[in-house]
Design a binder for these strands. Structure first.
Lengths: 202, 202
DNA sequence: GTCTATAAGCTGATAGAC
DNA sequence: GTCTATCAGCTTATAGAC
């Protein structure tokens, strides 16, 4: 019993090391340029051993996404404690947090559109479950923010949700950072402004 | 002389057929899932012949992007004839046009972030030249729209530009279309609203 | 000469033997 | 766990057809 538990713990620690490495490489180079050989080498195990833990390169990426979604869930939970904050403030805080993660180089960058990954993620139970968990919490705040008049009621709640997700992996962040003209904080402030306030003069 | 001209014309027609096929496949399946074998087969030429025209898979994609940018330039030119339209109306018309192209399944879908393509495009003279051409015209309208008070002056012009480009390949369009809840026109109207007007109540 | 067909080299993902 | 195939897909080389 204790032996099994210990073995399981070792496995969990190793998987954790794998996912950490994958997360970093995905943020650095993206899914295409990350090779499984590279992951195995950095973790310090054989490539075949990797495949004992994860059935495919796609599942590696999915595991990284699950971890990020878990971190997001944590963040949402801490926000929920703040009784004095409005739903809109929660949503803006989440958007800010996702951009901070991205600019910190900790957001896995996956091909958004058609790819082998898309199909794989769409049928990954664990990923979908975490995504729904996060979406449910965000959806709650979105509906509340629309009810209290902060968010535009003519925009469907699902579009608001997708828009927030899109900001979490917005390539514009990277372009602005690469230009070197703005601090990370300024980039995030500007993106929040265009996302919530739009491009038009208010 | 006439012989050379004829030969050149044949080459141009063939390249046109290649780029058309590549454009369609990129829109359908994306860069990753498009294979060079597939392109050659659909065009009806040998793969080796393909490599006479284009040196790599990346250059095939670049050629498709150049074509789209040319179409965009044409569109900008026709808009410029409309003397009575405001700069803001021009910008909104362009954003609408890019979304129409995307929903019509004619927008090449490339991996936005880190990939072999990114580096290749960044050093493709022809692509960069067309991109700059389009950006210059858009930049003119952006500056004018900010000057006449239509666009928010506190948003740097370059961020406005990047935001418009991002809308041209926004994955949110595809997600909304896949949901089946909205017509193409409604999707575009909503995206225009959130892009220019923001999520907040006005 | 240019296009075609074919095949072979290379890299990277995946599966199986040990 | 490692080591060793296998397979797919990009790229290049070779040889023959018009």
């Amino acid at each position: 019993m204790a032996k099994v538990s210990f073995r399981e713990q070792v496995l969990r620690v190793r998987e954790d090391a794998i996912v950490s490495t994958v997360n970093r490489l995905l943020a650095e180079k993206g899914f295409d340029l990350m090779t499984v050989d590279e992951v195995a080498a950095e973790v310090g195990i054989a490539k075949a051993s990797l495949y004992k833990h994860f059935a495919s390169k796609e599942e590696l990426a999915a595991a990284a996404m699950v971890r990020v979604l878990d971190k997001a869930s944590e963040f949402l939970a801490t926000r929920k404690q703040l009784a004095e904050a409005t739903p809109l403030q929660h949503l803006q805080a989440v958007a800010r947090w996702t951009m901070e993660v991205q600019l910190a180089g900790e957001m896995p960058s996956l091909p958004a559109q058609n790819s082998s990954l898309r199909a794989s993620l769409a049928s990954n139970k664990l990923y979908l479950a975490r995504l729904m968990e996060v979406s449910d919490q965000l959806g709650e705040w979105i509906v509340q923010a629309q009810a209290d008049g902060a968010l535009d009621k003519t925009v469907p709640a699902e579009l608001v949700l997708y828009t927030l997700y899109a900001r979490a992996c917005d390539p514009v962040l990277g372009v602005l950072k690469a230009s070197g003209n703005y601090s990370d904080e300024r980039i995030i402030d500007m993106l929040l402004q265009t996302c919530f306030g739009g491009l038009l003069t208010r």
